[in-house]
Simulated scan of single mutants.
Amino acid sequence: MFRRSGIFTDPPVALTAAELRSGLAGARRAARQALKTLRTAGGQYRRYRRDAGTTYVDWPRWHSEYLREYRRGSDWVRPDNPGGISGAASFSGTL
């Protein structure tokens, strides 16, 4: 496993409501773009931070919003979704 450092561990900064909305909208936009490409959340966040300057949404909040949008736009099924199949948890037979 690799160690996250740099921008991923930067502390949160005080944001106005408008700055927070803008940053979270950027996370949603990045997630929609990633559905059509091979871009990763980390790479998208690096791009966001490069453009955001000193007023940025920290990684945990940005990533949470990113995942929410990414999962909404994909065919991915959450394991705790009652209507979905969740790998080994759905196996009821014996080996």
Rank of each mutant, 00 (worst) to 15 (best):
M1Y: 11
M1V: 05
F2N: 10
F2A: 07
F2V: 13
F2K: 14
R3G: 15
R4T: 08
G6A: 13
G6L: 06
I7L: 13
I7G: 10
I7W: 10
I7A: 10
F8R: 09
D10Y: 08
D10K: 02
P11T: 12
P12V: 02
V13E: 07
L15T: 08
L15C: 03
T16F: 05
A17M: 14
E19A: 06
E19W: 09
L20A: 07
R21E: 07
L24Y: 03
G26L: 01
A27M: 01
R28C: 02
R29L: 07
R29E: 01
A30G: 00
R32Y: 01
R32S: 00
R32L: 01
R32D: 00
Q33M: 08
Q33V: 07
A34N: 08
A34M: 09
T37Q: 13
T37A: 11
T37R: 11
L38V: 12
L38D: 14
L38I: 13
R39V: 11
T40R: 13
T40H: 14
T40M: 14
A41V: 14
G42T: 14
G42M: 11
G42I: 12
Q44T: 12
Q44K: 07
R46N: 13
R47M: 12
R47S: 09
Y48S: 01
R49C: 07
R49I: 04
R49M: 09
R50Q: 14
R50T: 08
D51K: 03
D51L: 08
D51M: 08
D51N: 15
A52R: 02
A52C: 05
G53C: 05
T54V: 15
T54G: 11
Y56V: 08
Y56D: 07
V57S: 01
W59E: 06
P60Y: 05
P60F: 04
P60L: 04
P60E: 03
H63M: 09
H63C: 06
S64V: 14
Y66Q: 00
L67E: 12
L67Q: 04
R68A: 12
E69Y: 04
Y70M: 04
Y70L: 03
Y70W: 00
R71N: 05
R71E: 01
G73V: 03
S74W: 11
W76D: 09
W76N: 06
R78P: 07
R78T: 09
P79H: 06
P79L: 11
D80I: 01
N81Y: 04
N81Q: 06
P82S: 07
G83V: 03
G83E: 01
I85H: 03
S86E: 01
G87F: 09
G87S: 10
A88R: 05
A89H: 01
A89C: 06
S90C: 09
S90P: 05
S92Y: 14
S92T: 14
G93Y: 15
T94P: 15
T94D: 14
L95A: 13
L95R: 11
